[in-house]
């Protein structure tokens, strides 16, 4: 028996909505795991990518230093890297903070905002540092495929993965392409 295709997934500056939509393939997941084995993913809590992942699915844009490290780990270990959803492709709604200076964002959230008690900007060394702007994935690493949508529908995941697993060039027909 040939070994299964290794799929890793993660959410960076995303809301896990794309992962929820992926799970909406429902009973088709049983067919999928006949040929796919999940590597690093919030689905199984594996913390790091094996060196031989075939497909990496990444939800969310890049908003902090940890996102950059995770994204680079995926790029290093996945043969095919996929930007999943609006945030991964163009920064999405988290990128709305790009129009406000970072200092003002932090002040509004932790110092001056309504209902803030004990105002202080979090500075624990364990917290990843924020980037000045939220960035889409393709500005940080090479991305091989894009699945647009907020979120991409379960059928988008299914069409894309079944195309890829069948060894054909993935394509999305008109009715599966949405930016919203």
């Amino acid at each position: 028996m040939t070994s299964k295709i290794r799929v890793a997934t993660t959410s960076l500056a995303g809301c896990f909505g794309c992962h929820m939509s992926f799970l909406d393939i429902d009973e088709r997941m049983l067919k999928l795991v006949e040929v796919v084995e999940f590597d690093r993913s919030p689905i199984n809590d594996i913390e790091h990518c094996s060196s031989n992942c075939d497909i990496g699915l990444i939800e969310g844009g890049v908003c902090n230093s940890e996102n950059v490290h995770v994204l680079r780990e995926f790029r290093k270990n996945c043969k095919i890297l996929v930007a999943v959803g609006a945030c991964a492709i163009n920064g999405g709604l988290p990128a709305l903070r790009n129009f406000v200076p970072l200092e003002e964002c932090l002040a509004e959230a932790y110092l001056d905002g309504i209902g803030v008690e004990n105002p202080q900007i979090p500075s624990d060394p364990e917290l990843p540092l924020l980037l000045d702007k939220v960035r889409p994935l393709h500005e940080v690493v090479k991305i091989d495929y894009y699945l647009p949508g907020c979120p991409p529908s379960a059928d988008v995941f299914w069409k894309f993965l079944t195309d890829l697993i069948a060894g054909s060039e993935p394509s999305l027909p008109y009715e599966l392409v949405h930016y919203d």
């Binding site: 999405g92 990128a95 709305l96 889409p136 894009y146 949405h178 930016y179 919203d180």
Partner: peptide
């Protein structure tokens, strides 16, 4: 052009041209 937060989404010609051209990324 952040479609998920735009009231024009679905009625937008810029978006529809993107769909027509099978534009998947920026």
């Amino acid at each position: 052009h952040l479609c998920p937060g735009c009231e024009k989404s679905g009625n937008c010609q810029l978006q529809a041209v993107g769909y027509h051209l099978n534009m998947l990324d920026n």
